[in-house]
Design a binder for these strands. Sequence first.
DNA 1: CTGTTAGCGCGTTCAA
DNA 2: TTGAACGCGCTAACAG
Lengths: 342, 342
Amino acid sequence: MTKINLKILAHELGVSVSTVSKALQDSYEISQETKDKVRSLARKLNFQPNPYASSLRRHQTRTIAVIVPEIANNFFALAINGIESIAQEKGYHVLIYLTHDSYEKEKSICEHLQSGRIDGVLMSVTTETQEYEHIAKLMDKGILLVFFDRVRHEIETAKVTTDDFVSGLSATEHLIQNGAKRIAYLSLSPNLSIDYKRKAGYLEGLHKYNISQAPELIVECTNNDEEAYQRIKALLTSPHRPDGVFASVEKLATIAYAVCQELSLQIPQDVKLICFSNLKIAALLSPSLSTITQPAFEIGKEAASILFQHLDRKRASIPNENIVLKSILVPRASSQGETLMI
Amino acid sequence: MTKINLKILAHELGVSVSTVSKALQDSYEISQETKDKVRSLARKLNFQPNPYASSLRRHQTRTIAVIVPEIANNFFALAINGIESIAQEKGYHVLIYLTHDSYEKEKSICEHLQSGRIDGVLMSVTTETQEYEHIAKLMDKGILLVFFDRVRHEIETAKVTTDDFVSGLSATEHLIQNGAKRIAYLSLSPNLSIDYKRKAGYLEGLHKYNISQAPELIVECTNNDEEAYQRIKALLTSPHRPDGVFASVEKLATIAYAVCQELSLQIPQDVKLICFSNLKIAALLSPSLSTITQPAFEIGKEAASILFQHLDRKRASIPNENIVLKSILVPRASSQGETLMI
DNA sequence: CTGTTAGCGCGTTCAA
DNA sequence: TTGAACGCGCTAACAG
């Protein structure tokens, strides 16, 4: 167990600590010869300068935090993949924090993050998030923030999202064009940006086709899977069962699917189902399901790029901006086609 | 943008810096009165001590790295979920690094991690990893390591895996009991622990039922999806097509499924398919698929627990140990049953 | 019970 | 072109 530091290197080479430091940073003040000497020894001992000592001096950590509700969700997993790839490229390090969709946890994580551990945050808020003082406090400490997917428009900063309204509209039209007349919307939480935008698209879709919206067809599902299951079951056993279901998020589609199986409802004969999903396997395994796929990887990359750009330029804050990427509707029919590979 | 530190707090309260430091750490040396004063001001200014300064002094970072091949894979996502939950509980921070199954990247990440940024590593190696000097170097710097899932037995430390041999055997028996006679094994890489153990289980299963193993039925698929697709297609269009396929990992099952669709092969009538998969949605959406589910979340939790335990006790190394958790075989028939919820 | 001092490892003056 | 000295913010040893 050999701990190396500048001092040891300096001693070994018979030069001063600051010379070694400068040499490793390729400073113009140091002769080529000395640089070579220093570097070859550093490589030989595989020395890496202590990043925390360096952070302390430089007042920057080259570390960001990613705060998401969950990770076993292909959208977030893919987004993190995008984030990590840009981070690796730009020499940043990525800390992961999961809120499990709890506001309390989100708050507590943000509070811990005021310590100077990170330069910036990429965040997708919880469905419970109503206030955002915890986020304001973070920004007050000079920590840059970029939202992605589940954003809060009340906070001034960059936000990377998908065209939720448009795709909500497309999804609804898709169901209508496939013959659905009574279309239900499964909502996760009305105070979630992605949810109310998709719902607005849904409403617009109905309106466009002169279909009146029956209030009982909008089902508020909570984060509680059991409860969601019961509510969807109630919906699908009601006298006027819908013939189309639009699940606003992947999890609700899964639950709706399970309910259909329990009730022996055929998809898409009895009920047509469309959902937001980034599981290629879902489209693949189930020819009965239409899906809307978000460019999750690109969202992650885009959000990270914006953050790193502003960090590298040492900006004090990120101007308000909405970056909207397009999702892709994968209709049932072509689900078996070319979009196969993961 | 208000940057607070101990000095400011001390000045504000008219006490010394070390008093504040001790008070915040609830040291027995400090009077209750002073503690209260200090803490109330700290809370008011929402002050968090700089963790990097503290790391520098204490020689411990309370930060670990998780190195995995990919994240958009439900097994790893769930494992990270487990890791993060324990980390949050124990007050550790989690850095994420993805290798994309490239040995070069794994090596480079390990080298960067020698800097003292972390106290420990949780790791799942790439299929390409043949040497492990990069890992040895890490450990030489006093960084503790626990492997999970994709392990290297050559390295002495704790390893958390599933009963790959047993479940490989069960999977094969399952196919045989469902009438398959010519069973193919889709392999990812023979130098991957999970793979060769599962394959050993497969061979044992054939042996047990006196089925001779035809070499052409073991298909080495690489990480290249296109190539895997072609090889599986070749397998399924060969004159003596197998009537059972055992996919050693989820991705290969997806590809195999896609090939079946292209060739219009019915599952399970033409070909029975079983695979390792942690996507509940796979079992849910496809009544034709049997799956073996690993306790991914628990694996993550277990690996993290072991690591934190040893870190907290300031052990210099972790003794060799194999922790083996049980996977669950979810047969096709019950795929529609109770195991519905995500 | 509180304060003074030293130093973790590094980068950055400034002087030589 | 190099080196000595200082301090980032914090904790630990020691003194009072």
